[in-house]
Design a protein around this nucleic acid. Structure first.
Lengths: 138, 138
DNA sequence: CTTGACTCCGTACCATGGTACAGGGTTCAG
DNA sequence: CTGAACCCTGTACCATGGTACGGAGTCAAG
């Protein structure tokens, strides 16, 4: 079976060579045997693995979480575990969405107030940022 | 008018002393005159300024954007400009929310499929991450 | 044999928003 | 006068996800 040099892997997966080495350092892709030279010799499957990483990132997983997902992918048989990870991530996404929605709503209200009653001497938005209530002391 | 030492400012604003110095380095709060010693002497208004920063952060502004907002706050009379910044930020928040919603929806679908037809040998989620369509070559 | 393209390693750097020292100086109470 | 508690500067470090670069080795074609 023919093996690929890192540049070929990177090109096929759509990432930079440095990124492939970065993923290796982060243990997302395995350390592969080197030939007589010190060149990495990748099996073709690594390209798929990197694409898996890309898609997982698009779904909001961090590299650390993806390492976990890849481990499940490697040891076939953990469908329920994978689903669990997906569901946890969904909860997290929902929380992030809710947080952004709260910001959005707060800022939307300020913008409306400001649009209704603009006041250069005492802009409603700046005023709210100055005096807003918040649990400041942590 | 009495002035405050940095520790007092930090305590009143609810941040660490290092954070106050950090904000000074980032030019979010002014360089203040020092006394006979080299201690910073802050006017009381700086506490309010730091709270302004905190609240702006809560609304999703970056420190760079907050620097901008503070400049508008300093030169009274830019209510329309402030509103413009707020509206741009709202658009950005909407985009981020939409992106997260897309991730959420995609992952939600995968989780449902996986819950309907779990398969340890070929988990629908892992399978989708392996073969998903995406514009890979950039 | 040389040249160009590729690879290697190690390290530094980017943004973001801080946090944590180390090794000093200052200030105030007792 | 001494010690605690504060302040100073400068630098390094944290996570996140890479990107860039220098200097050296390798490989294939011409």
């Amino acid at each position: 079976m023919e093996s690929l040099l890192i540049g070929e892997v990177a090109a096929r997966a759509g990432v930079l060579v440095e990124t492939v080495r970065f993923y290796e350092r982060k243990r997302l892709i395995p350390l592969v045997p080197r030939g007589r030279s010190k060149y990495r010799r990748y099996p073709a499957g690594v390209v798929q693995r990197i694409r898996f990483i890309r898609r997982s990132k698009q779904l909001g997983f961090t590299l650390e979480e993806i390492r976990d997902l890849l481990a499940l992918r490697d040891r076939t048989g953990g469908c329920a575990t994978v689903r669990d990870r997906a569901e946890r991530k969904i909860v997290e996404l929902d929380e992030r969405i809710a947080a952004l929605n709260r910001m959005r709503a707060a800022l939307g209200e300020l913008a409306v107030t400001c649009a209704d009653e603009p006041n250069d001497a005492r802009c409603p938005i700046l005023h709210a940022l100055d005096d807003g209530e918040d649990g400041c002391v942590r």
